[in-house]
């Protein structure tokens, strides 16, 4: 192993740790907000459905990078200081929750109407119907697109580097800059190739799992 490699690997491992932390935070926030919003989207009440629809259309429709810049620049403009790390988590969560909401809506709407009527006949209110009857059944339909969204999310965390947050790609970029200054050789090819391989190792099994789930859960 060339002498420049061990420190770069150690530094990038820290970056990878942040990639995974950002992913976990975003998944947690995205699923919680997304399931709630997705359920609201199936309501016939316009007062809750329309704002949820607007939220979903905006944060799904905008390029993620614009959402990240928006969060990163906006909050300081209204005097809220925020680290690039926090801005990345918030921006990615807005995007992820909107996508989860759309997946949940699709899955909930695929549940036959009889299930809703039966729940109503049992005297369940809307929240009980969703929690005990509809959502557990729609998990089957949600799982393949959610797993594929997770792979997409891990890839999208690399965008945090653009607003200066520290994660895998940012660690690689700083290593390249450092090596260029120190030694004159950037070693960009092996470093970026290694970064590609790490993302591939994270995402390829998820993509395969999503494909297999879809095949095995197909009705």
């Amino acid at each position: 192993m060339p002498s420049w490699a061990p420190p770069v690997i150690a530094y990038s491992a820290q970056g990878l740790e942040f990639t995974l932390i950002i992913s976990v935070i975003t998944v947690a926030a995205g699923v919680v907000v997304g399931v709630l919003l997705g359920s609201l989207l199936t309501l016939p009440v316009a007062i809750v459905r329309v704002p949820s629809r607007i939220y979903v259309e905006v944060w799904r429709g905008l390029p993620i990078i614009i959402t990240l810049f928006f969060v990163f620049f906006t909050l300081p403009a209204i005097n809220l200081r925020l680290s690039a790390f926090a801005a990345a988590c918030i921006g990615l969560s807005l995007w992820a929750s909107a996508n989860v909401a759309e997946i949940v809506r699709g899955a909930v709407q695929s549940i036959p109407g009889g299930q809703f009527q039966a729940s109503a006949a049992m005297g369940f209110n809307w929240a009980q119907t969703m929690t005990y009857v509809i959502l557990p059944q729609s998990v089957r339909r949600m799982l393949p697109p959610l797993v594929s969204l997770l792979a997409n999310l891990i890839q999208s965390t690399s965008l945090a580097a653009v607003i200066g947050a520290f994660e895998l790609l940012q660690a690689a970029r700083r290593s390249i800059e450092r090596l260029t200054v120190d030694t004159g050789n950037s070693e960009a090819i092996p470093i970026l190739a290694a970064v590609l391989i790490v993302y591939f190792i994270l995402c390829f099994p998820l993509a395969q799992a999503s494909r297999r789930l879809e095949a095995s859960l197909a009705v």
Partner: peptide, 9 residues
């Protein structure tokens, strides 16, 4: 299965 941003870099 790799991020577009890394491909660009």
């Amino acid at each position: 299965n790799t991020p577009l941003l890394v491909q660009i870099f």
